[in-house]
């Protein structure tokens, strides 16, 4: 949980960066690297791409520090940049990915209960199910249930109203349940 003193400290770091002390930016990168990487991974579904997306996000944030609004949290601003980077990636990759390739992401049914119940494989199945969700549902599910943000903050990050977000979340949850059942995963 980010408290008021953390926000104040981060604002000071941003001011130092704006005054030319780039080294201080490493404190923010250290602090949010895992968060940015995990969001990107849950949205794009590939660790190498997620690393690129997360690193590009920090570089874009640094380049645009003059635009940072000091009334807000750096983390929220970074969330938005990460999500937008992932959207750009999806747009670029969309034309190259056929429906058949997406369907191949879903493993064949008929795994043994031992396989399905292993924690590692369950994690892989969850990631594959997330990858199949429509992007707008996936973003909400990741921010709400992986990152634990409330709808108000997600609305700020995605620029979408709370009611619309809830509809996306409801549909996303039900679709995830169907997908995991279809994969034979017992959660």
């Amino acid at each position: 949980m980010i408290n008021g003193s953390t926000i104040t400290e981060e604002h000071e770091i941003i001011k130092q960066c704006l005054n030319g002390d780039a080294d201080q930016y490493a404190v923010l990168v250290d602090r949010y690297s895992a968060m940015a990487f995990n969001i990107a991974y849950r949205i794009v579904g590939d660790a190498d791409v997620a690393k690129d997306m997360a690193q590009e996000s920090f570089i874009s944030a640094y380049t645009a520090l003059e635009d940072f609004k000091f009334g807000s949290k750096f983390s929220s601003w970074l969330y938005r940049i990460v999500v937008n980077k992932c959207r750009d990636h999806h747009k670029a990759a969309k034309e190259a990915t056929t429906v058949d390739e997406i369907v191949e992401l879903v493993p064949a049914r008929g795994q043994t209960p031992e396989q399905a119940s292993s924690s590692r494989q369950t994690g892989d199945m969850i990631q594959k199910a997330l990858s199949i969700l429509p992007v707008e549902q996936r973003e909400v599910i990741v921010l709400k249930h992986v990152e634990g943000l409330d709808y108000g903050e997600i609305a700020d990050i995605l620029g979408v109203g709370v009611n619309a977000l809830k509809v996306r979340a409801h549909r996303g949850r039900e679709r995830l349940k169907e997908l995991l059942e279809g994969m034979g995963v017992t959660v």
């Binding site: 895992a34 995990n38 991974y41 690393k51 690193q55 924690s119 369950t122």
Partner: peptide
Amino acid sequence: AIETNERMPAPPFFT
């Protein structure tokens, strides 16, 4: 399952 799914650390030398 989603909320308790293992999170990954940032890749080495990320910063």
